[in-house]
Design a protein around this nucleic acid. Sequence first.
DNA 1: GTTGAAACGGCATGCGC
DNA 2: GCGCATGCCGTTTCAAC
Lengths: 151, 151
Amino acid sequence: MILDDTDRRILAVLQRDTSLPLDDIGAAVNLSRNAVWRRIRLLEESGVIRARVALLDAEKLGLGLIVFLMVRTNDHRPGWLARFAKATRDMPEILGAYRMTGDLDYLIRARVADVKAYDALYQQLTRRVDLADVSASFVMEELKDTTALPL
Amino acid sequence: MILDDTDRRILAVLQRDTSLPLDDIGAAVNLSRNAVWRRIRLLEESGVIRARVALLDAEKLGLGLIVFLMVRTNDHRPGWLARFAKATRDMPEILGAYRMTGDLDYLIRARVADVKAYDALYQQLTRRVDLADVSASFVMEELKDTTALPL
DNA sequence: GTTGAAACGGCATGCGC
DNA sequence: GCGCATGCCGTTTCAAC
């Protein structure tokens, strides 16, 4: 799908707020309500818009601590990555897991209540998959955190 | 605000999909449309629900490369952090920026088109703030990436 | 092929119980 | 927390450019 400038402006709005009426979006991009509606429909069908979700306040849910885990493994057999991937997907505190450049290096991004909860997460992970080395870094201050992609 | 089990189940649904009719959510949590609506209203007013947004497909927008930047600084004067924070907020390719434990260590999470685009980002960042040391790690494979928090 | 105006109808919103 | 009434707004139709 090829996007023009109007599509991009619509996406910019929807990345920030999907609760606006079509009329308001139309006013912002100089288009009628149903022209906007048809473009959004196409963007959804083509998969450019993956989902419409609610973003929750982690602090208010008692998840005040962000942790990054740098993981190293010795096990280079084919099954290991599959087990590691499944483990991260099964653990809801883990928000992101990435295989990185540089031989075998994995990065995990997680949200937990506190250091105690981090330890439980760590223990659970090491029980499920064999990890050669894990080093944790805790976030002291979140300077930026957004789901909005550059357009 | 105190959440009961029904609130949490509603949040679990909304974290995945906000496009469902209230009747469907009500069916999922055994509640009438109206009761669901009032709970969601309270969750929004109390700020537990921060926003409703559209998630876009990064690949389809030509942003296939995820980069993590480990940043170190020598400048411990008060103005530095403010300038660094503003720089990251101003640069739309930077999705996350975090001040970490361990003296002075910053982590940046960014989305760019390719290595060339990463270099442009790097140059732009170093032009705006003085960085002692930057090491980049590229993501080879995204095993997990979600905005849904554990409930 | 894409747009805007208008009509339709579903569903969010608000009230009374 | 539920059922019912109201009306906004998403959805569809159709004509015009």
